[in-house]
């Protein structure tokens, strides 16, 4: 090889290797920085008490509570809708239906639409249209639902994560061999019996993965809840669907951008970020574990 060729070879290899190094280093730095500064305030107290002295003391329990409440409500909405949509498209609709193709296209590409657009929809449709409508009909114009509320925030999140659940469920349904369905039919099963007794039990892990990924996104995304229900310091925990709520990601955002004394709130801020990260990672990790267990079982031929 000529000198020039050798030089080109080495630089090509080293440049691409450098790219890998940089990426890994950056991730390590971010995680390390957060872990080091966040561990300070971390403790059972922090997780179970409410903020005191403004936000410089105490804990972030209301934010944790709000995040969990948001995610639970979101899950109640998104799992049935998402699974039903996927089951309908895969098991009930005609295989070459143009409607199904269109819906699948819409769902796959909706996954790339910015979260803030969903937030726009949440404000314009859920709060202004539906919320005010409910107020006019049920409360004679009094303001109950026509304002930011945990109900609207969770519905907005449900729409945001709907594509995730639908895609994961369809993938799980597709992985069930067609021969199982044929056997069930040949023994005299109706379509629903076949789905309930053969397909769904096989697809459960895949559906679970999709659900966990949706939950992880629900816990981490802030843009959709900025105007649909999240609030900074609330005196009470949310008890009704029309209440606002505190949330981990939102808390980080406000603390980081609008706190009057950055130095004083830094420790709490870092610890909150750490809690949020741990939560998201735990969820993602669980989903990845389930998914690799599914893939392993598929390779072994069940």
């Amino acid at each position: 090889m000529t000198h020039r060729a050798r030089w080109a070879a080495t630089s090509f290899t080293s440049l691409t290797a450098l790219a890998c190094l940089i990426i890994v280093a950056v991730v390590a730095i971010i995680l390390g920085n957060i872990a080091i500064h966040g561990v300070d305030r971390l403790g059972l107290d922090f997780l179970t008490r409410s903020p005191e002295h403004g936000v410089t003391q105490g804990g972030i329990f209301p934010a944790i509570f709000g995040t969990v409440a948001l995610v639970i409500l979101m899950t109640i909405a998104v799992i049935p809708l998402g699974v039903a949509t996927a089951v309908y498209m895969h098991e009930y609709a005609a295989k070459d239906s143009p409607l199904v193709w269109l819906v699948r296209l819409a769902i796959q590409n909706l996954a790339g639409v910015p979260a803030i657009v969903f937030g726009l929809f949440g404000v314009g449709f859920f709060i202004q249209f539906v919320g005010h409508g409910i107020d006019n009909i049920l409360y004679g114009g009094e303001l109950h639902y026509g304002k930011p509320a945990i109900l609207w925030a969770s519905l907005t999140m449900a729409l945001l994560t709907l594509p995730t659940v639908v895609v994961a469920t369809e993938e799980a349904l597709r992985a069930v061999p067609q021969s199982y369905r044929e056997v069930a039919y040949s023994l005299g099963a109706t379509r629903w019996q076949m789905i309930r007794k053969v397909v769904l039990p096989q697809a459960v892990s895949g559906i679970l993965t999709g659900g966990i990924l949706a939950v992880s996104r629900g816990a981490g995304e802030v843009a959709p809840i900025l105007f649909t229900g999240a609030a900074y310091l609330l005196p009470h925990l949310p008890t009704r669907l029309s209440d606002q709520f505190m949330e981990l990601g939102y808390h980080v955002y406000v603390l980081a951008t609008q706190s009057p004394d950055v130095e004083a709130t830094k420790p709490i801020l870092y610890s909150t970020v750490l809690v949020l990260l741990v939560l998201t990672f735990a969820l993602n990790f669980t989903a990845v574990m389930i998914r690799s267990r599914i893939r392993r079982r598929l390779r072994e031929g069940r």
């Binding site: 990426i23 816990a219 990601g249 980080v252 990845v288």
Partner: peptide, 22 residues
Amino acid sequence: IKPSIEILAGIPSVVIGFFVLM
């Protein structure tokens, strides 16, 4: 590298914004 990328993908954008800001 692949796990690092997956971890990076899993970091919520508010955390990335926080890191850049702070």
